[in-house]
């Protein structure tokens, strides 16, 4: 599986396990800024940790402080390895824009059609600086 995606906010290439959220999330109140754990008890992925993951977001809801939570995750080294959104999110992505202004290294945010999210579910995924999203081949399947 490979998909070219549009770069929303440039950043550092990232690799990690894909975490495909099945419901929109409010970062503020929904994600612990210290750990990256999903704290919203009503969210289907409650208890999962977004830090280091390639995070596929079906949308964001709720508080306008999502940006502050994402910037804090970046500052604490607990940000996702990359963010994949189906549309630009004016609130959340400000966290990356502001963190870049502060001179901190930020993950990429790229845009991909929502119906393509499932192809990456739970697979090791890499998002390149050119915006492409690829599955990392399983090392056991690689030719010697």
């Amino acid at each position: 599986m490979s998909a070219p995606a549009e770069i929303l906010v440039p950043g550092k290439a990232g690799e990690g396990e894909a975490l495909v959220l099945t419901a929109p999330i409010s970062f503020w109140g929904g994600v612990d800024p210290k750990t990256g754990r999903i704290a919203d008890v009503r969210h289907p992925q409650h208890g999962e940790v977004i830090a280091g993951k390639v995070l596929f977001l079906p949308g964001t809801i709720g508080s306008s402080s999502a940006s502050a939570v994402l910037m804090e995750l970046v500052h604490n080294g607990r940000a996702p390895a990359a963010l994949v959104l189906h549309e630009p999110d004016a609130i959340l992505l400000l966290g990356l824009i502001s963190a870049r202004e502060m001179g901190w290294e930020t993950p990429m945010a790229v845009r991909l059609e929502r119906d393509r999210f499932d192809g990456f579910r739970d697979s090791r995924t890499v998002v390149d600086t050119n915006g492409s999203i690829d599955l990392v081949p399983n090392t056991y399947d690689r030719p010697a």
Binding site: W28, A68, E72, N76, S98, W104
Partner: peptide, 16 residues
Amino acid sequence: DGALYHGDSGTLFAER
């Protein structure tokens, strides 16, 4: 809404 403390990053941003 930016003056609510969520961690040090927001303080550093405002002070910048």
